[in-house]
Design a protein around this nucleic acid. Sequence first.
DNA 1: TGCATTATGTGATTCGAGTCACCGAGAATG
DNA 2: CATTCTCGGTGACTCGAATCACATAATGCA
Lengths: 244, 244
Amino acid sequence: MVTFGTTPLRFTPSTMSVSLERISDFLSTVPLFRELDRAAVRGFAELTREQKFAKNAVIVSEGDPGDALYVVRSGEVKVLLIAEDGREVILDVLGIGDHFGELSLIDGRPRSAHVVATQPSGLLVLRRADFRRQVEQSPLVAWGLMVELSRRLRQADGTIGSLILLDVPGRVAKVLLEHAGPGEGAPLVKQLTHQTISQMIGASRETVSRAMAEFQEKGLISVQRRIVTIVDRTALIARSRPKL
Amino acid sequence: MVTFGTTPLRFTPSTMSVSLERISDFLSTVPLFRELDRAAVRGFAELTREQKFAKNAVIVSEGDPGDALYVVRSGEVKVLLIAEDGREVILDVLGIGDHFGELSLIDGRPRSAHVVATQPSGLLVLRRADFRRQVEQSPLVAWGLMVELSRRLRQADGTIGSLILLDVPGRVAKVLLEHAGPGEGAPLVKQLTHQTISQMIGASRETVSRAMAEFQEKGLISVQRRIVTIVDRTALIARSRPKL
DNA sequence: TGCATTATGTGATTCGAGTCACCGAGAATG
DNA sequence: CATTCTCGGTGACTCGAATCACATAATGCA
């Protein structure tokens, strides 16, 4: 088994075919395709293959010539950079309905990051040529893609800002808020380990642990069986701002 | 005079009209429009107004409802976040041919950052509705826009990576390399003050100063009359990598 | 169910880099 | 061309956070 840094990686893709109707139904829930009519969605659905990946399987590697777009149908994947010394920076954690790989598709350059399954996952794969043809025929998809890229760019700029302006507890507060469920007192959407959080915000696992202990102690969050719930959203928001 | 943080800001826009031919010629050198034929470029040119801004003039403010795209025709502007405590994070420095403001144009959300002129500048302004109509008519522009957004996203992810993985001297080395002129021994493209560099990489002015002193001492760069030249590119690249 | 992982909690120590406080050198401007 | 500004250089001190070193608690398989 190959290992990159601390994560053991397995290479085990496998292809299977799934009902076209199910795929169409699923795709029409994805923001990127939501504006399209049934026929157009079906057009895309016909071009996909579903590929299954085991936990820790490498889906794409930085530097690869990328020529496919992936939509997460089940499971969870992380997008990450791996430094030469093995340290990992997690740029994003993607769940059902999220997609990745469009950058290489658009500009033809190599993949800019690794993507690894954090759970057994099923991904819909769309090849470059097929995708491009569809996009050229339907401006709606092009627009949707631009909206998605804009969202990510805003998010990335926000991340750069918080890396520079916030201390570690502030950055922890920010990730917690970003992954908060909708209502008051709802638990976080995803289960994030301290390790994962630390790799998302550029901190050590220990410091994240201490920050969360502090938040718990002060009643900002509560943790039960490793499930985090935001108790005092206002205070947490205050903690996620630069100190004056 | 209003001041945000340490930068004194003046609000002094003024509009003038310029020859359509000149504008067309200029626009056709901008990557975003490069693929278009003369007629299409002219279509865009007709929709622009040139606006002049004095040094330190605020062009757009974070939170504004943005409905225009700007192309830098002359001068230089910086894209920045301003924290409540006045600290500034410089996300990008844009020169002639660069453009900004497309995010709000695409997703209709408020401006995500401030843009301030660092030099007296002339900007071509394209209003949202006009731009959108043109984009819908020419898929080439849509594609070009996606290519540009991809480039920025890759750049932003790279920045996040270096903020997390590199120490301050490493990040300084990286900016220097990114602004290096093409040939060996050519000076940097832009004149960056230590202050500016420090705000781009999230460091203090003093630490940047010390890092550059070290680089000079070790013969990696040379500085004459505040103009930086890269002497030993290889060593500088080595310094811009995570240490093992 | 019991053992092997994997995740978390905490102290002690070290260190990179921020902050503060100046200094001198150039540049810009009236 | 003299005087402000702005920019860059450096020492001393402080502090947040990384690191190291274990201890303990959950989890998940076999």
